[in-house]
Amino acid sequence: MTETCDFLVIGGGIAGISAAAFLSETARVIVLEAESTTGFHATGRTAAIYIRNYGNATLRALNAAAHGFLEQPEGVSETSLLSPRGELMIAAEDELAMLEAYVAGASGMERLTAREAVELFPILRPELIAAAAFERDAMDIDVDRFLQGLIRLMRQRGGRIVTEARVETLARTDGVWTATTPAGRFAAPVVINAAGAWADPVALLAGARPRSITPMRRSAAILPGPEGHAFDSWPLVASASERWYAKPEAGKMMVSPADETPVEPHDAWADEMDLAEGLYRFEQAVTMPVTRVETSWAGLRSFSPDRTPVCGFDGEREGFFWLAGQGGYGIQTAPAMARLTTQLCLGGTPDLSPATIAALDPRRFDGA
């Protein structure tokens, strides 16, 4: 027996679940998730922070468009998904150009002296800071409450999630896509490819041209917090060239080497060498010794060649919709991407500018 719906979403991360929740207001939606639970890969391994100025111009437009929903997530949570954090960016002498490039075009960023930077993150070594900038409005995101609220909303609207349903075949006949999985067969006129690191393999199953969506491993570790400091309210701090970043995390200190290693899609784990090098760079920048790693992990951040997500219908495979390549911006852009997906799939008028929509269109790669 084949179960039918209006939209078949492949991928149960924040991208697929948010699109499904928005679409399910007026359409029948089924989400197929390969793992035993939703949010298993990138969604569950995120730094969980909203930074308005993070990313290129297209991503900054998405960040801005998503803020209102994250602040007032109607139907998902009764309270804001955001809480104060702040982002402090510091630059050594050889990183000044990178800091300038980041600040260019940014909004709401304050330039700070080394002394002012240390006041915000007191274990920094001031003699190593040539310049600094601070985004006061950067916020922590409650990712679990966000994801679970979307799931609850989708189910209230009649949507369904099928886990352990890795797509094995995907074919279109008479205007309908049929996906075969270990959990059964599912069919819909439109398939939404929200498979994250597996977006290109899913496209190949559908006979669509891959968009060179490349998974890149990023590692992170939890360290004991700095002794003698009340640090829970400190901001996230990052080096301007992304050699490392750190933020308080539930009474500990999370540190990442900000690595980006291209890998095949898989259940990622932290690379010991990348982690060791990143922790060394962090230790050189602060007065806190790294005595032990309490736990470590890694996630896959998947990028298109121009580091901008793809969101739109495939130019060659009818009814095949791309929602992928979110890189490290997937959580904070999810509401904007889900809204655009819904508008494009249902024939509505998009809220985003034509330039932003064109920058996201997967057909931009067709002539490459």
Rank of each mutant, 00 (worst) to 15 (best):
M1V: 10
V9S: 03
G13I: 11
A20D: 08
A21N: 09
A21P: 00
F22K: 06
L32P: 00
S36L: 02
T37W: 03
F40M: 04
T43Q: 05
T43Y: 04
T46Y: 04
I49E: 05
I51Y: 11
A57R: 05
T58C: 14
L59E: 09
N63F: 01
A65M: 10
Q72H: 15
T79P: 00
L81V: 10
L82I: 03
L82N: 01
P84I: 00
R85W: 10
E87S: 06
M89G: 02
A91D: 11
G105T: 01
G105V: 01
V118P: 00
E119L: 13
F121D: 08
L128Q: 12
L128D: 07
R136L: 09
D137W: 12
I141W: 00
V143Y: 02
D144I: 05
R145A: 15
R145D: 08
L150N: 09
G158R: 12
G159E: 00
V162C: 09
T163F: 14
A165C: 15
R172H: 10
G175T: 07
A179F: 13
P182Q: 12
P182E: 15
G184S: 13
N193E: 08
A197H: 10
D200P: 00
V202L: 13
V202Y: 12
A203M: 14
A203W: 14
P210K: 08
S219H: 12
A220F: 12
L223H: 06
P226L: 15
H229M: 08
D232W: 00
D232A: 15
S233W: 04
V237I: 10
V237A: 09
E242L: 14
W244F: 15
E249Q: 09
E249Y: 11
K252Y: 11
K252W: 05
V255N: 01
S256R: 08
P257R: 10
P257D: 15
D259R: 02
E260L: 06
T261C: 08
V263T: 13
E264M: 04
A276S: 15
E277I: 09
L279I: 11
R281A: 13
Q284L: 07
V286T: 13
P289M: 15
T291F: 14
E294W: 08
S296K: 03
L300P: 00
R301Q: 11
S302F: 06
R307E: 14
F313W: 15
D314L: 03
G315Y: 01
E316K: 04
E318R: 10
W322K: 03
Y329I: 02
I331D: 03
I331N: 02
P335Q: 14
M337N: 05
R339F: 10
T342A: 14
L344P: 03
G347D: 11
G348L: 10
T349R: 12
L352W: 02
P354A: 11
A358F: 07
P362K: 04
R363K: 14
R363P: 00
R364K: 15
